[in-house]
């Protein structure tokens, strides 16, 4: 363990830990925008600068590893002044339309602007304007709100292994975009949306469905596959308007396209409410559960008697639990008497 002294508080951290990690362990707040605990350090936003005894210039705490006996100061008038300059610079190139933004109330940049009391902007000037909208079906990409913290780029590369987006252009015109500025055409896992600290990346389906302050969060498990990712349903007026995942869950907050964006079936009017039985004349009719189960049992028996058990095969779903799948194969083998049983995950 390495000993460190941060703002007079002593602590011990593992070798390789950064100053920021050590400070968080000691409950000392340091503002950041580009840092994300699950991604490699970026060091771009410059808000987490601290002073370290023996180093002449401020350094970013997110990139600096703790060394034995290091003495760190996280807040001085000079540091806070620099932070305010940086924030003002970011906001001088930001739409500042929080009143209309999906992420209002749930935005790190907005929080920091509030705490640092950025009202007047000394650096007001040209702002990046992008006319083109990304036509992909899932992710709203409002690059005028992008602060180029690089979290989305890192998540796409390090977590998903896709690298669908990267930094393009130079200087003030730098921008994060897919190759050749085409519409995003990736797996749409939405990890980028999950890590974005501003309103630059949101779900297309989120629009005007309700902001975070009015949301009731319901933690549950994703029903799509046997992986069983922890998800959080964002519910407004009894409607699921957004799905997120908590970093503390075993899937560390990462989801796939279905889990993150495929929630519209929940409230869909086309959703089945009763079993349906196919009629001889064609078409389906609604039935009760008792009737449907009796019908299925009767037909299975008939087929088994007439054609033998191996004329029947069973295919179960990855959306069932392990227990359900166990029971299903047991049913096929013991009750029907066949080994013709498989699972869609193998296909």
């Amino acid at each position: 363990m390495i000993k460190v002294l941060i703002d007079g508080k002593a602590g011990a951290v593992k070798e390789g830990a950064t100053v920021l990690e050590a400070a968080r362990m000691l409950n000392i707040p340091i503002p950041t925008l580009c840092h994300h605990p699950k991604l490699s350090p970026f060091g771009g936003c410059r808000l987490c600068i601290v002073e370290i005894k023996g180093i002449p210039r401020p350094v970013t705490s997110c990139t600096t590893p703790v060394t034995e006996g290091m003495e760190v100061t996280t807040s001085t008038p000079a540091l806070e002044d620099l932070r305010k300059t940086v924030l003002e610079l970011i906001l001088s190139d930001h739409p500042n339309d929080c009143m209309l933004c999906e992420r209002a109330g749930d935005c790190t940049l907005q929080e920091l602007a509030y705490f640092y009391d950025v009202k007047e902007n000394r650096f007001a000037g040209e702002r990046r304007i992008y006319e083109k909208k990304d036509g992909n079906p899932f992710i709203e990409r409002d690059m005028e709100k992008c602060i180029l913290c690089g979290r989305c780029v890192n998540a796409c590369e390090e977590i998903q292994g896709v690298s669908a987006i990267d930094f393009a252009y130079r200087g003030f015109k730098s921008k994060i975009c897919p190759p050749y500025e085409h519409d995003l055409n990736c797996e749409f896992c939405g990890q980028c949306v999950a890590v974005c600290p501003t309103g630059a990346l949101t779900g297309k389906g989120w629009s005007h469905k309700g902001r975070q302050k009015d949301i009731k969060e319901v933690d549950t498990t994703c029903p799509y596959c046997g992986t069983g990712c922890g998800i959080t349903l964002h519910v407004k007026r009894n409607e699921v308007v957004r799905v997120t995942s908590k970093e503390s869950g075993w899937n560390e907050g990462w989801l796939c396209a279905k889990g993150r964006f495929g929630y519209s079936f929940i409230g869909s009017p086309e959703r089945l409410r009763t079993p349906l039985i196919k009629e001889a004349a064609g078409g389906f009719r609604e039935a009760s559960w008792d009737e449907a189960l009796e019908y299925a049992a009767k037909r299975l028996k008939e087929i088994k008697e007439k054609h033998g058990p191996d004329s029947i095969g069973g295919l179960s779903s990855a959306r069932c639990t392990n227990e359900d799948n166990y029971l299903f194969q047991k049913f096929m083998r013991a009750a029907i008497g066949t080994n013709n049983v498989d699972h869609c995950a193998r296909l």
Binding site: V86, D93, L148, G150, F167, G171
Partner: peptide
Amino acid sequence: TQAESCGKCVPCRIGTKRLLE
């Protein structure tokens, strides 16, 4: 320098633009 800034960090990307303005 403003045109050649890589765009990664805020002071260089936006700060030099404001200096230039």
